[in-house]
Design a protein around this nucleic acid. Structure first.
Lengths: 249, 249
DNA sequence: AAGTGGTCTAGACCACTAT
DNA sequence: TAGTGGTCTAGACCACTTT
């Protein structure tokens, strides 16, 4: 009955983290199989000598990890791994930017052009209105790995060039500078094959599989400020994730 | 000073949800700009007449949504939207399976073959060992949209065919049946172009951009049970998400 | 009726940051 | 030193499920 690990209050690790790991381990080793019920919250309180809020916090964490599901009035149940709530993170993508030593951003072009249909549509402006086009390539260890093409609305109230380039600086997009005037962004991943232009910039051949990450950013008035695309060779990027109990905590 | 919305205890909506929405709205309308500090937890307790745990729950939710960050001893700060913690869900993908009326799974082939290099490697068996190959196509409204190719280890202790097909039934993979013996799975999205075979199954032309979702599932002894790939035309699938404050709650 | 999870209170002590 | 977030307690009441 008391056949379980205990929580060590002397450790640096908080009680609710210890309880998360205890329950995760018990699920991982088959003590509680998919579909079975975990001990009730009040039982866990008694067994591990912690307060209800601490138990709830631990269970909430397992809930967020997609490992269990709760049914009010009934109990907490171990979920079978499934593809339902799976998410893929951009961590791999993000890592490209992390070590600034190895990566350099090269601006290929920055000029004012007239908006075409697609651009006018996405930026909610008129066809032929002026927009700023920026083409950048991100180079790691001398190797071009990411092509970024972006169009920004021309705000007459703002000074044009240098400052504008900072509105969505690549670094700002990724780490978040805290000084932005941007409220939100919409992102989408598409499968694509490299066009001739894209292949040239990325120093490879046409028709190779690639990811396109399209983004539109909005200001606090919900007006579009910029839209663009990251293009990345498919063999340089992978979105990976796990379901169920992964071995690394 | 008391210039704020209040929490209505008569509503069905819990207090912590109301507080989440109040803070989200204030961030969305620019009351608190990116980089600025939210009122302290004790201030929020006083202002909205709720207990510390309720305030913490609300702030934890904003933290999980990537909208704010907390610094112990300093405060809670509004984050500028960035691509750092962005995740893409498989919801769109999952929706393909949801209405069972419109979608049918057709088994193209199910037979025992000898493992090749790639299969032996992923399933941790020997080259030439017997595996079960299943090729399925998912059809929606008469239109083939998803091609699934999977290889399962032959477990001599299990009866072969019918039962085996259920180990990773497409429906089971997505909704989670609760009866699985699977502990965890690893997933990865790759960009690809359709091969001749894939294009034929999906009733389209070669070299079209496509997503490949590779998966490996493990049992409770951490032994691989199956590996396979979903192949989907790029024009039938899009992974989308938002950063910052999205307009829909 | 008994048990379960969902919400919430009104405090406490600690680690950390700012000044 | 004062203020902040991080952890935790020991209860309470409610909505819901199970028997």
């Amino acid at each position: 009955m008391d056949n379980h690990t205990t929580i060590d209050r002397r450790l640096f690790e908080p009680a609710y983290i210890q309880l998360i790991n205890i329950l995760r381990e018990q699920i991982a080793n088959g003590t509680y199989l998919p579909g079975s019920r975990l001990p009730s919250e009040s039982e866990l309180c008694k067994n591990y000598k912690v307060s209800p809020m601490t138990v709830r916090r631990s269970i909430k964490a397992l809930l967020d990890q997609g490992i269990v599901s709760t049914v009010q009035g009934s109990g907490t149940y171990v979920k079978a791994p499934n593809l339902n709530g799976v998410t893929f993170s951009m961590e791999e993508f993000h890592n490209i930017f992390k070590d600034k030593e190895r990566t350099k951003v090269k601006i290929l072009e920055a000029l004012i052009i007239r908006a075409d249909d697609a651009t006018a549509n996405r930026l909610a402006i008129g066809v032929g209105d002026r927009v700023i086009l920026i083409r950048r390539v991100l180079i790691r260890d001398g190797d071009p790995i990411l092509y970024h093409k972006e169009q920004l609305i021309c705000d007459p109230r703002r000074p044009i060039m240098e400052a504008e380039l900072e509105v969505t600086s690549l670094h700002g997009l990724f780490v978040g500078t805290g000084e932005t005037k941007l409220k939100r962004g919409e992102l989408a991943i598409e499968a694509a094959v490299l066009s001739k232009e894209e292949a040239e910039v990325l120093n490879t051949i046409q028709m190779q599989p690639a990811f396109r990450l399209e983004h539109i950013f909005y200001d606090f008035e919900d007006k579009p400020v910029s839209w663009g695309r990251f293009i990345c060779r498919g063999d340089r990027l992978k979105f990976a994730t796990t379901v169920g109990i992964s071995n690394s905590k």
